[in-house]
């Protein structure tokens, strides 16, 4: 087979399902796990609160909660629901679990030398993160017109990754790149899938994550010491 042969394929040739089946994945996982969505919402609020606090124990706790979210969305949504209709989703599921393991190691062993003992409260960071995560959860609802399709942090992979990338700024740049590789790969995969499905509203999500991820390779927030 020549290179020209492969160029004759389009993205849609590799997609074996339609938008109806994809959007119903969110409905199904929400129906199956009702009423545990409350736990996902509580986790969102907890992460936001920890981001506001910003001290070392809070940073460790954020990374551990992210790890839990990655495991849940990887083993649950990707491997159990998405994988049967799209094989690469299963591979990504395993990668999500690996990423969770990395986050756990970072949470437990990273010293965060030089970070302030009593940082100023980061109200804007926590509030902005919570607002962003909540809004992104609603894109699947807007796309499908069905509240049951809400894509919560810790359940839906796109929202989990989009919400994780800003939290990864807690890690210094010299190690952060390792944690940004999977968000980068997933965003490209997800953007290509959603574009081909024609789910234009949801396409915004991986595109947004892609921009955040690329920025996060270079950007480092300055820690703020409490003046008290």
């Amino acid at each position: 087979m020549t290179d020209v042969f492969w160029f004759s394929y389009s993205l849609s040739d590799f997609l074996m399902f339609g938008p109806e089946v994809f959007l119903r994945l969110f409905v199904r996982i929400n129906q199956d796990f009702w009423p545990w969505q409350g736990g996902a919402v509580a986790m969102m609020v907890l992460v936001a609160g920890l981001l506001v606090r910003g001290d070392k124990p809070a940073k460790r706790a954020v990374l551990l909660l992210l790890a839990a979210a990655w495991i849940w969305s990887g083993a649950g949504f990707l491997m159990e629901y998405y994988g049967p209709i799209n094989i690469p989703a299963t591979w990504f599921g395993w990668a999500f679990i690996l990423q969770a393991a990395l986050l756990t190691v970072a949470a437990l062993v990273w010293p965060w030398d030089g970070s302030p003992e009593k940082p100023a409260r980061q109200w804007h960071a926590g509030t902005a993160w919570l607002a962003m995560t909540a809004l992104l959860s609603l894109l699947a609802v807007a796309q499908s017109g069905n509240w049951q399709a809400i894509a919560l942090f810790g359940i839906a992979p796109d929202v989990t990754i989009a919400a994780s990338v800003p939290c990864l700024l807690l890690l210094p740049r010299r190690v952060r790149w390792l944690f940004l590789l999977l968000p980068l790969l997933w965003s490209v995969f997800s953007a290509a899938t959603l574009w081909t499905l024609g789910t234009r509203l949801m396409f915004v999500l991986p595109l947004f994550t892609l921009v955040l991820t690329v920025m996060s390779f270079w950007f480092s927030p300055r820690p703020v010491q409490n003046r008290d």
Binding site: F17, V21, I85
Partner: peptide
């Protein structure tokens, strides 16, 4: 093709 790939739904 595409129509019967609905997983466990």
């Amino acid at each position: 093709w595409r129509t019967f790939n609905v997983g466990g739904d």
